[in-house]
Amino acid sequence: MDPAKLRELLEQVQSGARSVDDAASALKDLPFADLGYAVVDHHRALRLGVPEVILGQSKTAAQIVGIASELARTGQNVLVSRLDPAKAQEVCTAMPALRYHEMARVATLEQAPIPRLGTRPVAVVSAGTSDLPVSEECAETLRMLGAEVERIYDVGVAGIHRLLHRRQALDATSVIIVIAGMEGALASVMGGLVEGPVIAVPTSVGYGAAFGGLAALLGMLTSCASGVTVVNIDNGFGAAFAAARILRAGARG
Rank of each mutant, 00 (worst) to 15 (best):
K5T: 13
K5G: 11
R7E: 10
E11F: 00
E11H: 01
E11L: 12
S15K: 06
A23M: 00
A26T: 10
A26Q: 14
D29R: 13
D34E: 08
D34W: 03
G36H: 03
A38E: 14
A38C: 10
V39T: 15
H43G: 11
A45T: 09
L48C: 12
P51L: 06
E52T: 10
V53W: 08
S58E: 13
I64T: 10
V65M: 06
A68P: 04
L71Q: 12
R73T: 07
R73I: 02
R73F: 11
V78T: 03
V78C: 03
L79V: 09
P85K: 04
A88I: 05
A88Y: 05
A88L: 05
T93M: 11
M95Y: 02
P96S: 03
R99S: 13
V106T: 15
V106H: 01
T108L: 00
P113K: 03
L117M: 06
T119M: 13
A127L: 06
E137L: 08
C138Y: 02
A139K: 02
L142Y: 02
M144K: 02
E148V: 09
E148D: 13
Y153Q: 11
G156D: 07
G159D: 10
I160Q: 06
H161K: 03
H161E: 10
H161F: 12
L163A: 04
R167Q: 15
Q168I: 14
A169E: 15
D171K: 14
S174G: 09
I176S: 15
I177W: 06
I179E: 05
I179N: 07
A180N: 07
A187G: 05
A187Y: 03
S188T: 15
L193P: 10
V194A: 12
V194N: 10
G196L: 09
V198E: 05
A200T: 05
G206K: 02
G206R: 02
G213N: 06
A215C: 10
A215S: 14
L217C: 04
G219Y: 06
G219I: 04
C224K: 06
S226N: 12
V230R: 05
V231Y: 04
V231H: 02
N232S: 11
N232Q: 01
N232V: 00
A239Q: 02
R245H: 14
I246N: 02
G253S: 13
G253Q: 13
G253P: 00
G253V: 01
